[in-house]
Design a protein around this nucleic acid. Structure first.
Lengths: 226, 226
DNA sequence: CAAATGCTTCGCTTAGCATCGAACTATGAA
DNA sequence: TTCATAGTTCGATGCTAAGCGAAGCATTTG
Protein backbone atom coordinates (compact mmCIF):
# COMPACT_ATOMS: atom_id res chain seq x y z
CA UNK A 1 0.00 0.00 0.00
CA UNK A 2 2.78 2.39 0.88
CA UNK A 3 4.92 3.35 -2.05
CA UNK A 4 7.82 5.74 -2.03
CA UNK A 5 9.09 7.85 0.81
CA UNK A 6 7.16 9.11 3.79
CA UNK A 7 6.02 12.56 2.79
CA UNK A 8 3.46 12.89 5.56
CA UNK A 9 6.09 13.05 8.25
CA UNK A 10 8.02 15.94 6.86
CA UNK A 11 4.91 17.73 5.62
CA UNK A 12 3.59 17.52 9.15
CA UNK A 13 6.80 19.11 10.37
CA UNK A 14 6.14 22.11 8.15
CA UNK A 15 2.45 21.98 8.91
CA UNK A 16 2.68 23.39 12.39
CA UNK A 17 2.30 27.19 12.34
CA UNK A 18 5.11 27.81 14.80
CA UNK A 19 7.55 25.64 12.88
CA UNK A 20 6.42 27.13 9.59
CA UNK A 21 7.22 30.57 10.92
CA UNK A 22 10.65 29.46 12.02
CA UNK A 23 11.38 27.94 8.64
CA UNK A 24 10.17 31.06 6.87
CA UNK A 25 12.48 33.11 9.05
CA UNK A 26 15.35 30.82 8.08
CA UNK A 27 14.59 31.46 4.41
CA UNK A 28 16.59 34.63 4.92
CA UNK A 29 19.61 32.34 4.90
CA UNK A 30 20.91 33.77 8.13
CA UNK A 31 21.78 31.43 10.94
CA UNK A 32 19.45 32.21 13.81
CA UNK A 33 19.64 31.28 17.46
CA UNK A 34 16.93 29.35 19.24
CA UNK A 35 15.63 32.38 21.09
CA UNK A 36 15.53 34.47 17.96
CA UNK A 37 13.49 31.78 16.31
CA UNK A 38 11.21 31.59 19.31
CA UNK A 39 10.62 35.31 18.88
CA UNK A 40 9.87 34.90 15.18
CA UNK A 41 7.33 32.23 15.90
CA UNK A 42 5.83 33.94 18.91
CA UNK A 43 6.36 31.05 21.27
CA UNK A 44 8.36 30.38 24.41
CA UNK A 45 11.95 29.25 24.37
CA UNK A 46 11.13 25.76 25.64
CA UNK A 47 8.64 25.10 22.88
CA UNK A 48 11.06 26.40 20.29
CA UNK A 49 13.66 24.02 21.61
CA UNK A 50 11.48 20.98 21.10
CA UNK A 51 10.46 22.20 17.67
CA UNK A 52 14.07 22.64 16.65
CA UNK A 53 14.86 19.15 17.81
CA UNK A 54 12.13 17.79 15.59
CA UNK A 55 13.12 19.88 12.59
CA UNK A 56 16.70 18.81 12.91
CA UNK A 57 15.75 15.20 13.41
CA UNK A 58 13.63 15.42 10.28
CA UNK A 59 16.55 16.78 8.30
CA UNK A 60 15.01 20.13 7.47
CA UNK A 61 17.40 22.12 9.58
CA UNK A 62 20.99 21.79 10.69
CA UNK A 63 22.33 23.24 13.91
CA UNK A 64 25.72 24.29 15.04
CA UNK A 65 26.72 25.03 18.61
CA UNK A 66 28.88 28.02 19.23
CA UNK A 67 29.53 28.98 22.82
CA UNK A 68 26.24 29.09 24.58
CA UNK A 69 24.36 29.77 21.38
CA UNK A 70 22.87 27.27 19.00
CA UNK A 71 22.62 28.47 15.44
CA UNK A 72 20.17 26.93 13.03
CA UNK A 73 20.02 27.10 9.26
CA UNK A 74 18.02 25.32 6.60
CA UNK A 75 19.61 21.98 5.85
CA UNK A 76 20.17 22.58 2.13
CA UNK A 77 18.95 24.28 -1.01
CA UNK A 78 16.41 21.58 -1.58
CA UNK A 79 14.57 22.52 1.57
CA UNK A 80 14.54 26.18 0.57
CA UNK A 81 13.25 25.20 -2.83
CA UNK A 82 10.52 23.13 -1.27
CA UNK A 83 9.44 26.01 0.92
CA UNK A 84 9.25 28.36 -2.04
CA UNK A 85 7.13 25.83 -3.90
CA UNK A 86 4.84 25.67 -0.92
CA UNK A 87 4.56 29.44 -0.85
CA UNK A 88 3.70 29.45 -4.52
CA UNK A 89 0.85 27.04 -4.05
CA UNK A 90 -0.31 28.61 -0.84
CA UNK A 91 -0.33 32.01 -2.50
CA UNK A 92 -2.57 31.11 -5.35
CA UNK A 93 -4.75 28.38 -3.99
CA UNK A 94 -7.28 29.80 -1.62
CA UNK A 95 -7.80 32.37 1.06
CA UNK A 96 -4.54 34.08 0.56
CA UNK A 97 -2.37 36.05 2.85
CA UNK A 98 -3.63 36.92 6.24
CA UNK A 99 -2.79 40.54 5.95
CA UNK A 100 -1.59 42.32 2.85
CA UNK A 101 0.59 44.97 4.37
CA UNK A 102 2.82 47.60 2.81
CA UNK A 103 5.70 45.20 3.26
CA UNK A 104 4.11 42.92 0.74
CA UNK A 105 4.92 45.09 -2.25
CA UNK A 106 8.51 45.40 -1.13
CA UNK A 107 8.71 41.64 -0.72
CA UNK A 108 7.48 41.11 -4.23
CA UNK A 109 9.98 43.53 -5.63
CA UNK A 110 13.13 42.21 -3.99
CA UNK A 111 13.63 39.80 -1.18
CA UNK A 112 16.14 37.27 -0.04
CA UNK A 113 15.44 33.59 -0.66
CA UNK A 114 17.97 31.49 1.20
CA UNK A 115 20.63 34.14 0.68
CA UNK A 116 20.03 34.79 -2.98
CA UNK A 117 17.97 37.45 -4.70
CA UNK A 118 14.31 36.70 -5.37
CA UNK A 119 11.25 38.64 -6.39
CA UNK A 120 10.84 40.89 -9.39
CA UNK A 121 14.47 41.93 -9.48
CA UNK A 122 15.59 38.36 -9.01
CA UNK A 123 13.74 37.11 -12.06
CA UNK A 124 14.86 40.19 -13.95
CA UNK A 125 18.49 39.35 -13.31
CA UNK A 126 17.90 35.75 -14.25
CA UNK A 127 16.26 36.73 -17.53
CA UNK A 128 19.05 39.13 -18.34
CA UNK A 129 21.77 36.56 -17.73
CA UNK A 130 19.90 33.94 -19.69
CA UNK A 131 19.14 36.17 -22.64
CA UNK A 132 22.74 37.27 -23.00
CA UNK A 133 23.91 33.69 -22.91
CA UNK A 134 25.81 34.00 -19.65
CA UNK A 135 24.03 31.04 -18.11
CA UNK A 136 22.34 28.11 -19.74
CA UNK A 137 20.54 24.93 -18.95
CA UNK A 138 22.30 21.71 -19.62
CA UNK A 139 19.97 18.78 -19.21
CA UNK A 140 20.04 18.53 -15.47
CA UNK A 141 21.23 21.77 -14.04
CA UNK A 142 22.08 25.35 -14.68
CA UNK A 143 25.63 26.32 -15.52
CA UNK A 144 27.79 29.32 -16.34
CA UNK A 145 29.05 29.71 -19.89
CA UNK A 146 32.60 30.85 -20.60
CA UNK A 147 31.50 34.46 -21.06
CA UNK A 148 29.29 34.07 -18.02
CA UNK A 149 32.26 33.08 -15.90
CA UNK A 150 34.26 36.14 -16.93
CA UNK A 151 31.24 38.36 -16.37
CA UNK A 152 30.78 37.03 -12.88
CA UNK A 153 34.48 37.34 -12.11
CA UNK A 154 34.58 40.93 -13.34
CA UNK A 155 31.64 41.64 -11.10
CA UNK A 156 33.99 40.87 -8.24
CA UNK A 157 33.28 37.27 -7.41
CA UNK A 158 36.03 34.74 -6.78
CA UNK A 159 34.87 31.69 -8.70
CA UNK A 160 37.77 29.53 -7.61
CA UNK A 161 36.76 29.77 -4.00
CA UNK A 162 33.18 28.92 -4.83
CA UNK A 163 34.20 25.97 -6.93
CA UNK A 164 36.05 24.45 -4.03
CA UNK A 165 32.64 23.65 -2.60
CA UNK A 166 30.87 20.57 -3.83
CA UNK A 167 27.60 22.48 -4.08
CA UNK A 168 26.42 23.38 -7.58
CA UNK A 169 27.38 26.87 -8.70
CA UNK A 170 24.04 27.68 -10.25
CA UNK A 171 20.59 26.40 -9.62
CA UNK A 172 17.25 27.77 -10.52
CA UNK A 173 14.62 28.33 -7.95
CA UNK A 174 10.96 29.00 -8.55
CA UNK A 175 9.70 32.32 -7.30
CA UNK A 176 6.42 32.28 -5.42
CA UNK A 177 5.45 35.84 -6.26
CA UNK A 178 6.56 35.86 -9.87
CA UNK A 179 6.08 32.18 -10.58
CA UNK A 180 9.20 32.30 -12.68
CA UNK A 181 12.74 31.15 -12.18
CA UNK A 182 15.50 33.08 -10.50
CA UNK A 183 19.15 32.34 -9.89
CA UNK A 184 20.08 30.28 -6.86
CA UNK A 185 23.16 28.25 -5.97
CA UNK A 186 26.43 29.54 -4.68
CA UNK A 187 26.82 32.03 -7.53
CA UNK A 188 23.37 33.38 -6.78
CA UNK A 189 24.36 33.86 -3.16
CA UNK A 190 27.64 35.49 -4.09
CA UNK A 191 25.93 37.90 -6.48
CA UNK A 192 23.62 39.17 -3.79
CA UNK A 193 26.28 39.60 -1.18
CA UNK A 194 28.44 41.41 -3.71
CA UNK A 195 25.60 43.83 -4.45
CA UNK A 196 25.31 44.56 -0.79
CA UNK A 197 29.08 45.05 -0.52
CA UNK A 198 28.89 47.48 -3.42
CA UNK A 199 26.31 49.47 -1.51
CA UNK A 200 23.61 48.88 -4.07
CA UNK A 201 21.23 47.50 -1.50
CA UNK A 202 20.82 46.50 2.08
CA UNK A 203 18.78 43.96 3.96
CA UNK A 204 16.06 45.26 6.24
CA UNK A 205 16.17 44.08 9.82
CA UNK A 206 13.90 41.20 10.76
CA UNK A 207 12.58 40.82 7.29
CA UNK A 208 13.33 39.20 4.00
CA UNK A 209 12.98 42.52 2.20
CA UNK A 210 15.94 43.88 0.27
CA UNK A 211 15.93 47.62 -0.21
CA UNK A 212 17.82 49.00 -3.20
CA UNK A 213 19.03 52.57 -3.11
CA UNK A 214 18.09 54.60 -6.15
CA UNK A 215 21.68 54.66 -7.36
CA UNK A 216 21.91 50.97 -6.66
CA UNK A 217 18.84 50.30 -8.71
CA UNK A 218 20.28 52.29 -11.58
CA UNK A 219 23.53 50.34 -11.43
CA UNK A 220 21.53 47.13 -11.32
CA UNK A 221 19.58 48.07 -14.42
CA UNK A 222 22.80 48.93 -16.22
CA UNK A 223 24.49 45.65 -15.32
CA UNK A 224 21.49 43.50 -16.09
CA UNK A 225 19.78 44.89 -19.18
CA UNK A 226 17.08 43.04 -21.03
CA UNK B 1 5.57 38.96 11.94
CA UNK B 2 3.79 37.01 9.24
CA UNK B 3 5.31 37.45 5.83
CA UNK B 4 4.21 35.81 2.65
CA UNK B 5 1.57 33.18 2.16
CA UNK B 6 0.33 30.69 4.70
CA UNK B 7 2.40 27.60 4.07
CA UNK B 8 1.51 25.93 7.35
CA UNK B 9 -2.08 25.39 6.33
CA UNK B 10 -1.40 23.51 3.16
CA UNK B 11 1.59 21.69 4.59
CA UNK B 12 -0.69 20.49 7.36
CA UNK B 13 -3.09 19.22 4.72
CA UNK B 14 -0.34 17.04 3.28
CA UNK B 15 0.94 16.23 6.74
CA UNK B 16 -1.81 13.85 7.67
CA UNK B 17 -0.89 10.26 6.75
CA UNK B 18 -4.29 9.41 5.34
CA UNK B 19 -4.37 12.49 3.14
CA UNK B 20 -0.77 11.97 2.11
CA UNK B 21 -1.65 8.49 0.92
CA UNK B 22 -4.56 9.82 -1.06
CA UNK B 23 -2.41 12.43 -2.71
CA UNK B 24 0.26 9.89 -3.51
CA UNK B 25 -2.38 7.71 -5.12
CA UNK B 26 -3.51 10.68 -7.19
CA UNK B 27 0.05 11.14 -8.42
CA UNK B 28 -0.83 8.39 -10.88
CA UNK B 29 -2.83 11.07 -12.64
CA UNK B 30 -5.92 8.95 -12.74
CA UNK B 31 -9.16 10.38 -11.45
CA UNK B 32 -10.16 8.30 -8.46
CA UNK B 33 -13.47 8.03 -6.66
CA UNK B 34 -13.89 8.75 -3.00
CA UNK B 35 -14.19 5.10 -2.04
CA UNK B 36 -11.15 4.14 -4.05
CA UNK B 37 -9.19 6.80 -2.23
CA UNK B 38 -10.54 5.58 1.07
CA UNK B 39 -9.18 2.17 0.20
CA UNK B 40 -5.80 3.60 -0.73
CA UNK B 41 -5.56 5.38 2.57
CA UNK B 42 -6.96 2.55 4.63
CA UNK B 43 -9.77 4.55 6.17
CA UNK B 44 -13.55 4.51 6.12
CA UNK B 45 -15.59 6.25 3.47
CA UNK B 46 -16.87 8.91 5.84
CA UNK B 47 -13.42 9.98 6.90
CA UNK B 48 -12.24 10.04 3.33
CA UNK B 49 -15.14 12.31 2.49
CA UNK B 50 -14.15 14.90 5.07
CA UNK B 51 -10.53 14.67 3.99
CA UNK B 52 -11.48 15.26 0.39
CA UNK B 53 -13.51 18.27 1.37
CA UNK B 54 -10.46 19.75 3.08
CA UNK B 55 -8.11 18.95 0.24
CA UNK B 56 -10.45 20.51 -2.24
CA UNK B 57 -11.04 23.53 -0.06
CA UNK B 58 -7.29 23.94 0.21
CA UNK B 59 -6.92 23.86 -3.55
CA UNK B 60 -4.80 20.74 -3.73
CA UNK B 61 -7.42 18.66 -5.42
CA UNK B 62 -10.30 19.27 -7.78
CA UNK B 63 -13.40 17.14 -7.89
CA UNK B 64 -15.95 16.44 -10.54
CA UNK B 65 -19.30 14.79 -9.97
CA UNK B 66 -20.42 12.22 -12.44
CA UNK B 67 -23.53 10.31 -11.65
CA UNK B 68 -23.25 9.00 -8.17
CA UNK B 69 -19.48 9.05 -8.30
CA UNK B 70 -17.18 11.82 -7.34
CA UNK B 71 -13.87 11.84 -9.14
CA UNK B 72 -10.85 13.60 -7.70
CA UNK B 73 -7.62 14.63 -9.34
CA UNK B 74 -4.69 16.75 -8.30
CA UNK B 75 -5.52 20.39 -8.87
CA UNK B 76 -2.63 21.15 -11.21
CA UNK B 77 0.93 20.36 -12.18
CA UNK B 78 2.25 22.58 -9.45
CA UNK B 79 0.78 20.34 -6.79
CA UNK B 80 2.29 17.27 -8.41
CA UNK B 81 5.61 19.05 -8.57
CA UNK B 82 5.38 19.96 -4.91
CA UNK B 83 4.66 16.38 -3.96
CA UNK B 84 7.63 15.12 -5.92
CA UNK B 85 9.83 17.68 -4.17
CA UNK B 86 8.55 16.42 -0.86
CA UNK B 87 9.33 12.86 -1.82
CA UNK B 88 12.83 13.88 -2.79
CA UNK B 89 13.49 15.43 0.57
CA UNK B 90 11.74 12.72 2.50
CA UNK B 91 13.75 10.10 0.64
CA UNK B 92 17.13 11.46 1.49
CA UNK B 93 16.64 13.13 4.84
CA UNK B 94 16.33 10.55 7.51
CA UNK B 95 14.74 7.22 8.28
CA UNK B 96 13.82 6.39 4.76
CA UNK B 97 11.13 4.25 3.34
CA UNK B 98 9.22 2.05 5.62
CA UNK B 99 9.70 -1.04 3.57
CA UNK B 100 11.96 -1.39 0.55
CA UNK B 101 10.06 -3.94 -1.42
CA UNK B 102 10.68 -5.47 -4.83
CA UNK B 103 8.32 -2.84 -6.21
CA UNK B 104 10.86 -0.20 -5.33
CA UNK B 105 13.26 -1.05 -8.13
CA UNK B 106 10.44 -1.05 -10.66
CA UNK B 107 9.29 2.32 -9.35
CA UNK B 108 12.72 3.76 -9.81
CA UNK B 109 12.97 2.46 -13.33
CA UNK B 110 9.67 3.72 -14.71
CA UNK B 111 6.63 5.09 -13.00
CA UNK B 112 3.87 7.51 -13.68
CA UNK B 113 4.05 10.98 -12.18
CA UNK B 114 0.78 12.78 -12.68
CA UNK B 115 0.26 10.99 -15.98
CA UNK B 116 3.70 11.51 -17.42
CA UNK B 117 6.72 9.25 -17.42
CA UNK B 118 9.10 9.48 -14.48
CA UNK B 119 11.97 7.46 -13.09
CA UNK B 120 15.08 6.35 -14.89
CA UNK B 121 13.37 6.09 -18.26
CA UNK B 122 11.70 9.45 -17.77
CA UNK B 123 14.95 11.28 -17.25
CA UNK B 124 16.47 9.27 -20.09
CA UNK B 125 13.81 10.52 -22.49
CA UNK B 126 14.24 14.05 -21.24
CA UNK B 127 17.99 13.95 -21.75
CA UNK B 128 17.60 12.54 -25.23
CA UNK B 129 15.12 15.19 -26.31
CA UNK B 130 17.21 17.94 -24.80
CA UNK B 131 20.48 16.75 -26.31
CA UNK B 132 19.03 16.49 -29.78
CA UNK B 133 17.62 19.99 -29.53
CA UNK B 134 13.99 18.95 -29.65
CA UNK B 135 13.13 20.83 -26.49
CA UNK B 136 14.82 23.79 -24.90
CA UNK B 137 14.56 26.13 -21.98
CA UNK B 138 13.54 29.65 -22.64
CA UNK B 139 13.89 31.77 -19.57
CA UNK B 140 10.73 30.77 -17.82
CA UNK B 141 9.55 27.48 -19.22
CA UNK B 142 10.32 24.56 -21.40
CA UNK B 143 9.23 24.60 -25.03
CA UNK B 144 9.32 22.51 -28.18
CA UNK B 145 11.59 23.59 -31.00
CA UNK B 146 10.47 23.43 -34.61
CA UNK B 147 12.13 20.06 -35.10
CA UNK B 148 10.79 18.97 -31.77
CA UNK B 149 7.25 19.71 -32.88
CA UNK B 150 7.57 17.63 -36.01
CA UNK B 151 9.19 14.82 -34.03
CA UNK B 152 6.33 14.77 -31.58
CA UNK B 153 3.76 14.92 -34.36
CA UNK B 154 5.38 12.05 -36.20
CA UNK B 155 5.30 10.10 -32.97
CA UNK B 156 1.54 10.28 -33.34
CA UNK B 157 0.54 13.17 -31.15
CA UNK B 158 -1.94 15.80 -32.25
CA UNK B 159 -0.32 19.03 -31.18
CA UNK B 160 -3.21 21.21 -32.35
CA UNK B 161 -5.56 19.56 -29.91
CA UNK B 162 -3.10 19.96 -27.07
CA UNK B 163 -2.50 23.58 -27.91
CA UNK B 164 -6.17 24.35 -27.55
CA UNK B 165 -5.62 23.99 -23.83
CA UNK B 166 -4.24 26.92 -21.94
CA UNK B 167 -1.88 24.64 -20.02
CA UNK B 168 1.80 24.76 -21.00
CA UNK B 169 2.85 22.10 -23.46
CA UNK B 170 6.07 21.26 -21.70
CA UNK B 171 7.21 21.59 -18.16
CA UNK B 172 10.02 20.01 -16.30
CA UNK B 173 9.45 18.14 -13.13
CA UNK B 174 12.04 17.04 -10.63
CA UNK B 175 12.34 13.34 -10.10
CA UNK B 176 12.59 12.13 -6.51
CA UNK B 177 14.46 8.95 -7.31
CA UNK B 178 16.82 10.35 -9.93
CA UNK B 179 16.97 13.89 -8.61
CA UNK B 180 17.01 15.07 -12.20
CA UNK B 181 14.46 16.62 -14.50
CA UNK B 182 11.96 14.77 -16.63
CA UNK B 183 9.35 15.93 -19.10
CA UNK B 184 5.97 16.97 -17.75
CA UNK B 185 3.20 19.12 -19.19
CA UNK B 186 0.58 18.11 -21.70
CA UNK B 187 3.18 16.85 -24.18
CA UNK B 188 4.69 14.70 -21.46
CA UNK B 189 1.31 13.24 -20.73
CA UNK B 190 0.58 12.63 -24.40
CA UNK B 191 3.92 10.92 -24.91
CA UNK B 192 3.22 8.41 -22.19
CA UNK B 193 -0.29 7.61 -23.30
CA UNK B 194 0.95 7.20 -26.85
CA UNK B 195 3.57 4.70 -25.67
CA UNK B 196 0.86 2.72 -23.98
CA UNK B 197 -1.31 2.88 -27.10
CA UNK B 198 1.62 1.58 -29.10
CA UNK B 199 1.85 -1.37 -26.76
CA UNK B 200 5.30 -0.47 -25.54
CA UNK B 201 4.24 -0.49 -21.94
CA UNK B 202 1.33 -0.86 -19.59
CA UNK B 203 0.42 0.47 -16.19
CA UNK B 204 0.28 -1.99 -13.33
CA UNK B 205 -2.93 -2.08 -11.34
CA UNK B 206 -3.02 -0.14 -8.08
CA UNK B 207 0.48 1.12 -8.52
CA UNK B 208 2.46 3.84 -10.15
CA UNK B 209 4.74 1.32 -11.79
CA UNK B 210 4.96 1.25 -15.57
CA UNK B 211 6.08 -2.03 -17.05
CA UNK B 212 7.73 -1.94 -20.45
CA UNK B 213 7.68 -5.04 -22.61
CA UNK B 214 11.07 -6.06 -23.93
CA UNK B 215 10.14 -5.05 -27.45
CA UNK B 216 8.72 -1.80 -26.06
CA UNK B 217 11.95 -1.07 -24.28
CA UNK B 218 13.88 -1.69 -27.49
CA UNK B 219 11.62 0.66 -29.41
CA UNK B 220 12.01 3.23 -26.65
CA UNK B 221 15.80 3.04 -26.83
CA UNK B 222 15.65 3.46 -30.58
CA UNK B 223 13.39 6.49 -30.46
CA UNK B 224 15.25 8.20 -27.65
CA UNK B 225 18.97 7.65 -28.15
CA UNK B 226 21.60 9.48 -26.17
C1' DC C 1 -41.85 1.05 -6.67
C1' DA C 2 -37.97 -0.93 -3.71
C1' DA C 3 -33.18 -2.09 -3.12
C1' DA C 4 -28.46 -1.03 -3.52
C1' DT C 5 -24.62 1.85 -3.94
C1' DG C 6 -21.86 6.22 -3.40
C1' DC C 7 -21.29 10.01 -0.73
C1' DT C 8 -22.18 13.33 3.09
C1' DT C 9 -23.46 15.18 7.74
C1' DC C 10 -23.87 14.74 12.80
C1' DG C 11 -22.34 13.50 17.22
C1' DC C 12 -19.17 11.40 20.00
C1' DT C 13 -14.78 9.46 21.57
C1' DT C 14 -10.00 9.32 21.73
C1' DA C 15 -5.26 10.19 20.87
C1' DG C 16 -1.73 13.07 19.81
C1' DC C 17 0.77 17.11 20.41
C1' DA C 18 1.66 22.02 21.10
C1' DT C 19 2.21 24.86 24.94
C1' DC C 20 3.98 26.54 29.23
C1' DG C 21 5.80 26.48 34.25
C1' DA C 22 9.39 24.85 36.74
C1' DA C 23 13.55 22.73 37.52
C1' DC C 24 18.18 21.67 35.58
C1' DT C 25 22.70 22.05 32.74
C1' DA C 26 26.13 24.74 30.40
C1' DT C 27 28.55 28.69 29.00
C1' DG C 28 30.10 33.37 29.64
C1' DA C 29 30.61 37.71 32.48
C1' DA C 30 31.68 40.36 36.85
C1' DT D 1 32.70 32.51 43.21
C1' DT D 2 28.35 34.50 42.07
C1' DC D 3 25.19 36.08 38.76
C1' DA D 4 23.11 36.13 34.21
C1' DT D 5 21.90 34.19 29.94
C1' DA D 6 21.05 30.27 26.52
C1' DG D 7 19.24 26.09 26.00
C1' DT D 8 17.11 21.56 27.47
C1' DT D 9 14.12 18.22 29.96
C1' DC D 10 10.00 16.91 32.56
C1' DG D 11 5.33 16.91 33.87
C1' DA D 12 0.77 18.63 33.48
C1' DT D 13 -2.84 20.77 30.79
C1' DG D 14 -5.82 21.64 27.22
C1' DC D 15 -7.08 21.95 22.48
C1' DT D 16 -7.44 20.21 17.97
C1' DA D 17 -8.61 16.96 14.74
C1' DA D 18 -8.81 12.16 13.08
C1' DG D 19 -11.68 8.40 13.24
C1' DC D 20 -16.02 5.77 13.17
C1' DG D 21 -21.14 4.55 13.90
C1' DA D 22 -25.44 5.92 12.54
C1' DA D 23 -28.55 8.35 9.96
C1' DG D 24 -29.61 10.96 5.84
C1' DC D 25 -29.48 12.34 0.81
C1' DA D 26 -28.76 11.33 -4.13
C1' DT D 27 -28.41 8.33 -7.99
C1' DT D 28 -28.63 4.14 -10.42
C1' DT D 29 -30.49 -0.58 -10.99
C1' DG D 30 -33.94 -4.34 -10.72
Amino acid sequence: MKEGPDIAHIAALIGDPARANMLTALMSGKALTATELAGEAGISAQTASTHLAKLSEGGLVVTRKQGRHKYSTLANDGVAHLLESLMGIAAKSGHLRTRTGPKDAALRKARVCYNHLAGDMGTHMYDSLMQRGLILHDETDLSLTQTGATFVSEFGIDLDTLQRNRAPLCRDCLDWSERRAHLAGSVGRAMLSRMIDLGWARRLENSRVIRFSSSGEAAFAKHFPL
